[in-house]
Amino acid sequence: MSKLEELINKLCPNGVEFKKLSELMTPNPKSKIGAKKAEQMLKGEYPFYTSGKSVYYINEHMVDGENIFVNDGGQADIKYYDGKSSYADHVISFRPINVNGKYLYYVLMKKKEYINEKMFRGSGIKNINKNDFFNMLVPVPPLEVQCEIVRILDNFTLLSAELSAELSAELSARQKQYEYYKNLLLKNYDGEDNTCLKDIAKYSKDKINANELNEDNYIGVDNLLQNKQGKVKSSYIPKKGNSTKYQEKDILIGNIRPYLKKIWLADNVGGTNGDVLVIRIIDDNVIPEYLYFVLSSDKFFNYNNINSKGAKMPRGDKEAVMNYKFYLPLKEEQLKIINKLNKFKMICNDLSEGLPAEIEARKKQYEYYRDKLLTFKELK
């Protein structure tokens, strides 16, 4: 029998008392500082909690000790901090009383989905119904039980965070290894650049009508993913007019902020706009997959970034892109390089799919374990 089970059997074998949240908290005064103002303030040592995911650090604090912060608009984002801190004007802040503060935080995290579904109301940006929130019933076992639950969940949280960090680091390492291996195979030695892009490719000038486009074959710069991760379905589709047409095996490159490294080898026919370059091979001696590997290399993106124009929203120079020089081997050698990279990419893709799935599984395991620990029978 675990220590927690022993405590429950000894201190609350017949169930625990449920209390309203309002009985377990002292509200803090409403903040007069907005998130935008906090972002502009000098960097400091005290965390400033906003109504979103962002946490700023400023030079002043509004509260000290254990406090819980819940944004009152959008969806519940619950944070806990023990120490000097501040919060934005759209954040509900309160100090836990008559309860272990960390325990109360874990209970609210368990109820987060319920809070989002039942307590946020409105047609536009939803706001929390504070009356419902403060009257929500919370299980309050004896303090010794609360402390033991906090100890268990703190340890489990730490282990989960460490595992997620290790898995994420492994995924990043594999991706860097793939990039290194790709750049090594494509490495251009001095004097070996024998081809200019404009000699073997051109920009597409073909047009496609809007009625032929859908979420799968319209490519805007927004649905091209950063860091060479391909594309996702488009949330915007033109209703009328013509767009630049791309064909299967064309290479599409995001031309806004080239440092984001947006590129995709087309596997269908579709359309795009002026913010995306459509590069089409015109030389039968060039294999599209090989050219894609060349243009998805860090060397090309560094070149494109250096030659981009503009400060706030730099754009790639279309002429400079076509003047990019690289080494083009014979077709047989291109095929060898493609086969080697595809095999290595397959390994990396397996990891890219497997590791995030493992991280998500660990997260669900933690949530299940947390919910089990925080489920009590109500004392009659």
Rank of each mutant, 00 (worst) to 15 (best):
L171Y: 10
S172K: 14
L158H: 11
L153Y: 12
L159R: 10
L163I: 15
K187L: 06
S160D: 10
L159G: 03
D154W: 13
L167A: 04
A161H: 04
L186F: 06
A165E: 12
K182F: 01
L163Y: 15
L186G: 05
Y178W: 09
K176E: 13
R174F: 08
L163F: 08
K187W: 05
L184A: 14
Y181H: 14
L185T: 02
L185G: 09
E179C: 09
A161K: 09
E166V: 14
T157Q: 13
S160E: 14
Q175G: 10
L184S: 15
S164V: 02
E179N: 14
R174P: 02
R174G: 11
L185K: 09
L163T: 14
K187I: 00
E179F: 00
L186S: 08
L167F: 04
Y180K: 05
E170G: 08
Y180D: 03
K187T: 04
S168D: 15
T157A: 13
E166P: 02
A165C: 11
S168R: 11
Y180M: 11
S172M: 11
S168T: 13
L153N: 11
T157N: 15
L163W: 14
Y178V: 03
A161I: 07
L184C: 06
S160K: 14
Y181N: 13
L184W: 12
A161P: 01
Q177P: 03
L186Q: 08
A173D: 06
L158T: 10
Y181L: 14
L171A: 00
K182N: 02
N183I: 04
F156Y: 14
F156K: 04
L185D: 04
R174Y: 10
L167H: 12
L153P: 04
K182S: 12
L158I: 07
E166F: 11
L158A: 15
S160G: 01
L186A: 06
L171H: 00
F156Q: 06
S168L: 01
L184N: 10
S164G: 09
E170T: 13
Y178G: 05
N183E: 13
L186P: 04
L185V: 05
S164K: 15
L171S: 07
K176R: 10
E179P: 02
L158W: 00
L153Q: 00
R174V: 00
S164D: 14
K182M: 07
